[in-house]
Nucleic acid binder design. Structure first.
Length: 227
DNA sequence: CTCCCGATAT
DNA sequence: ATATCAGGAG
C-alpha cells in the first residue's frame, strides 16, 4: 500500500514519461574521451552552447593531453585557444588552476566527490554533478542548469528560483532512478520546443498539463518569469 | 549583487 | 539591437 501521489509527484512522473517518449535517446551532448576532458568541457559550457564547446574542444583536446599540459601552458595562450567561447579569460584561469590542483592534490586524477570537485576553480554544484554522473557513475543529485531551472518552473514542478533550492525540491518529486534522465530530457525539450524566448507551445507534448501554456491565464506572468 | 563575453537566433 | 547559451567567482 503506497501513499497516494501528491499532485507534484504525479506531474513529475507524467512529464518524464512523455518526454522519454519524445526524446528516447536523450543524453549528454558534450564530447569527451576521458574524465579530464569531461571536466573541461563542462567548465567551458557555462553560458555557452554545447555545439560551440564541441567545436572548440575538438582542437583543444588534440593540442592538450593530460593535466600537465593545461597546468604548464601560458594562461594567455590557453585563453587564445578558447577565444570563441564565452568568458574565455575566466575559463582559461579556471582550467589552469583546476589542472594544477588535480596534479598536486589529487594525484593527477579528477576527484570523485562533491566536496573535492567543488573546491576546484570554476566548478560549482552543477558542473560537479555532471562530472559525478557521467565521469564516475555517481548520481547524488539533479543537475540544474538554465533549461532545468526554466522548464521546471514553467511546468509548476517547483516555485523556487535559485538552482541550489530547486535541486532538493526536485529530488523530492522526481523518482531517483530517473534523476540523470530528467536533466537530459528537459535540456532537449528546452532546445527544441520550450525555448527561453519564444516557446512553441502549439507543438509541445506537455501543453495540456503545463500551467504556463499560452492561452491559460492562471499562472503565466506570475513571479517574474518572462512569459 | 556584478562581472565575465563571443556566437547565434530573433 | 537584444536575448540567450548545460554558471561560477568575487
Amino acid at each position: 500500500m503506497g501513499t497516494p501521489l501528491e499532485p507534484r509527484d504525479a506531474q513529475a512522473e507524467e512529464v518524464v514519461d512523455r518526454l522519454m517518449e519524445e526524446y528516447p535517446d536523450s543524453t549528454i551532448s558534450l564530447r569527451y574521451s576521458n574524465r579530464l576532458e569531461l571536466l573541461i568541457a563542462v567548465i567551458l559550457s557555462a553560458q555557452c552552447t554545447d555545439e560551440r564547446v564541441n567545436k572548440e574542444t575538438e582542437h583543444l583536446f588534440a593540442k592538450y593531453d593530460g593535466p600537465e599540459d593545461y597546468a604548464s601552458v601560458d594562461e594567455e595562450e590557453l585563453a587564445e585557444d578558447l577565444n570563441s567561447i564565452t568568458y574565455y579569460n575566466s575559463k582559461a584561469g579556471y582550467i589552469k588552476s583546476s589542472a594544477r590542483d588535480i596534479i598536486e592534490k589529487h594525484d593527477g586524477e579528477v576527484p570523485d566527490t562533491m566536496d573535492e570537485l567543488t573546491e576546484l576553480s570554476g566548478v560549482g554544484r552543477k558542473t560537479a554533478n555532471v562530472v559525478l554522473q557521467h565521469g564516475h557513475d555517481v548520481v547524488e543529485g539533479i543537475v540544474v542548469d538554465t533549461h532545468v531551472q526554466r522548464i521546471s518552473r514553467r511546468l509548476g514542478l517547483t516555485e523556487e528560483k535559485r538552482p541550489e533550492a530547486i535541486e532538493p525540491d526536485l529530488m523530492e518529486i522526481v523518482p531517483e532512478d530517473v534523476w540523470q534522465q530528467y536533466t537530459h530530457l528537459l535540456i532537449d525539450h528546452g532546445r527544441a520546443t520550450c525555448t527561453a524566448r519564444n516557446p512553441d507551445c502549439d507543438d509541445c507534448v506537455l501543453a495540456d498539463i503545463c500551467p504556463s501554456e499560452k492561452g491559460d491565464s492562471d499562472i503565466d506572468l506570475a513571479s517574474g518569469e518572462a512569459w
